[in-house]
């Protein structure tokens, strides 16, 4: 059942990514953080974290896809488009989770706060991704998925710009 495949895939990916990227600030030791801030400007740090998270997310997504297609099956008919979607979604997840992780790391109960903050913000990216996944499974023409991909790209740009502008305020404490 392709629908179940898509649901399972995104559930596994979402939970993996949240716990992977959440670590980028929450799990960091305070000594290391202070050392990091003495080396670089906050805007440089958040860009570096987002890029690192992006690489990590893409690797996790691609491994997940590979694993799914070996162990279950591969219902995706348009693989290049699906890979492009994974890359775009990875960037969105990385950008929003990095800045939320920075916020959560300053609170008392950071792991719980991280889960509460990240879920609703990620839903937008997730909804668009699931829609494109369905188009890929059905093997629809690429022009059908264009709207969703452009929306994803726009969300990515917006989240990255906000992270870049707002991160210095989170860090200042």
């Amino acid at each position: 059942m392709p629908v179940i495949w898509s649901a399972l895939f995104w559930m596994v990916i979402l939970s993996t990514l949240v716990s992977a990227i959440a670590k980028s600030f929450v799990m960091e030791r305070s000594g290391a953080t202070i050392y990091l801030y003495s080396l670089a400007a906050p805007t440089e740090i958040i860009i570096a974290k987002i890029l690192y998270g992006f690489l990590l997310c893409s690797a996790i997504c691609c491994t997940g896809f590979l694993f799914f297609s070996v162990v279950l099956n591969n219902p995706i008919q348009d693989v290049p488009l699906f890979l492009a979607l994974l890359i775009l979604a990875s960037f969105g997840f990385s950008a929003s989770l990095s800045v939320l992780s920075a916020i959560a790391s300053k609170t008392n109960n950071s792991s719980v706060v991280m889960a509460v903050l990240s879920f609703p913000v990620l839903i937008g990216i997730l909804l668009e991704s699931i829609k494109v996944t369905k188009n890929c499974i059905d093997g629809l023409d690429r022009s059908v998925s264009m709207d969703e991909l452009i929306t994803l790209g726009a969300i990515n740009l917006m989240v990255t710009a906000l992270s870049y502008l707002l991160f210095p305020y989170i860090w200042r404490s």
């Binding site: 939320l100 609170t107 839903i123 305020y169």
Partner: peptide, 21 residues
């Protein structure tokens, strides 16, 4: 400070959810 940052973030996340998608 943290909630102000999140508030701006939340507003930006709301726009696609209600108006675009």
């Amino acid at each position: 400070r943290l909630s102000a940052v999140y508030n701006i973030f939340a507003f930006a996340a709301m726009i696609p959810l209600i108006f675009i998608i």
